[in-house]
Simulated scan of single mutants.
Amino acid sequence: MTSRRHRTLSDLGMDGTQSLIIPQGLHDYSDAQVIMEHGQKAIFQKCIRSSVFGVEFYNSCPCLCFVTKGKEVFFTPTGEEIIVRAGEMILLPRNVFMVSNFSSTDGPLEALLFFFDNSVIREFERQSVHYYAQPASRIGAYKIDRHDSLSGFMRSITDIYKGIDGTRELLHTKLMELLFLVAAEDEPKRLKSFLHENCSDSGKRNIRHLMREHCSHNLSVHDYAHLSGRSVSAFNREFKRQYGVAPSRWLIEQRLTRAHDAVVSTDASITDIGFEIGYENTSHFISQFKTMFGITPKQLRLKQL
């Protein structure tokens, strides 16, 4: 059996059945290499050659991702798209499910990932207290544009520190240096909020990704709300904002579309098809099918003969 370390992040995208917990889970993939690591403090480099879509990941601690080559697209739990190109950086909050896409049409993706534990965050807050305002309201993922100082820092990481056995003190110092560089180029109040606060989207999953992966399962709206990390009312509200329709109606349409395909392409009985998509009452299934398609399942099948 092939060891997990021989898997790549592209394999995870094709799998689509689990979330990647980072930084811990990065050790299982050959295209993610440790530069320095002590506990939750870490610097990784990832180099992805093949396209990968729909990777859901969860940060167990705050992360700064700097793209050195290529382009990566991130989706927040609320469906916001954030495109990060070479020379740009995204700040990813702790305890948040996000989704990442990468297309190899523009070449490989290379990025540096910096993870911060509470000791780094507390020291940064202590040292910056005389210069920066108090944290603002809670903040989610956000992007920082190109800056020469940040690009120079990233080059030093790969040119000098890659391949050496960095001490805990060296790693701590480099993470602190990075935070002060970011604070100098960005709004300090925003950075402090990012580091200090638990994100308001904590524990929430991207709804579009969730529905794409699980819509074939006969789950209730309550089940989907639970999987998404939201209350039923919050799930209904966010779903309708993104899809323009209530989740109950959307699920019915998706299931009836699957039933339509099954009627046309299989020999399964109408009762079995209805049961397969969650209808225990065949008459109710036929009625809803006709309402949506203007024809009963039996009439549709006869038309195909």
Rank of each mutant, 00 (worst) to 15 (best):
M211D: 04
S220N: 04
D223R: 01
L210M: 08
Y224V: 11
R212A: 14
H222M: 09
F235Q: 10
S202K: 06
D201L: 14
F239E: 06
R208I: 08
D201T: 12
H196D: 08
M211K: 01
I207A: 06
K204L: 15
H214M: 13
L195S: 01
H214P: 00
A225F: 09
F239P: 06
H196S: 10
F239G: 03
N236S: 10
F235Y: 11
R212G: 12
K204Q: 15
E213G: 00
S231Q: 10
C215L: 11
K204N: 08
D223C: 03
H222D: 15
D186G: 00
H196C: 07
S200H: 11
D186S: 03
R190N: 14
S202G: 10
D186N: 07
K204I: 05
S216V: 08
N206M: 12
Y224N: 07
L195G: 00
R237D: 06
G203Q: 05
H226K: 14
M211E: 05
D201S: 13
E197P: 00
V232C: 13
R212P: 04
H226W: 09
L219D: 06
H222W: 02
S216C: 06
F235S: 12
Y224P: 08
R230G: 15
R208L: 14
C215H: 15
H196P: 01
S228E: 11
Y224F: 15
C199P: 06
Y224A: 10
S220I: 03
G203Y: 01
V221R: 04
I207G: 05
S193A: 13
L227N: 00
R237N: 05
H209F: 07
H196I: 11
S220H: 02
N218F: 00
E187H: 03
D201M: 14
G229M: 05
L219C: 03
C199T: 09
R237E: 12
K204D: 06
S202L: 04
V221D: 12
D223P: 11
P188F: 02
R190D: 08
S200E: 13
A234Q: 14
E197R: 02
Y224S: 07
F235C: 14
D201E: 14
D201I: 00
K189C: 13
N218D: 05
D186F: 00
N198P: 02
H226L: 15
N206P: 04
L195C: 04
S193Q: 00
D223V: 02
R190G: 01
K192Q: 09
E238Y: 06
H196L: 11
H209N: 08
N236T: 05
D223H: 06
R205N: 08
V221C: 11
R205Q: 15
R241W: 05
S228R: 07
H226S: 15
P188R: 00
G229R: 01
L219Q: 02
E213H: 02
F194M: 13
D223W: 02
R212C: 10
K240C: 12
F194D: 13
S220A: 07
H196M: 08
K204A: 15
V221H: 04
I207W: 03
Q242N: 07
D201G: 07
M211P: 02
G229I: 03
V232M: 09
D201C: 11
R237C: 13
R205H: 11
V221Y: 01
G229T: 01
F194Q: 07
E187W: 00
A234R: 13
C215T: 08
H196K: 04
L195N: 00
E238W: 06
Y224Q: 07
E213W: 02
A234H: 13
N236K: 05
S202F: 04
R241V: 11
C199L: 04
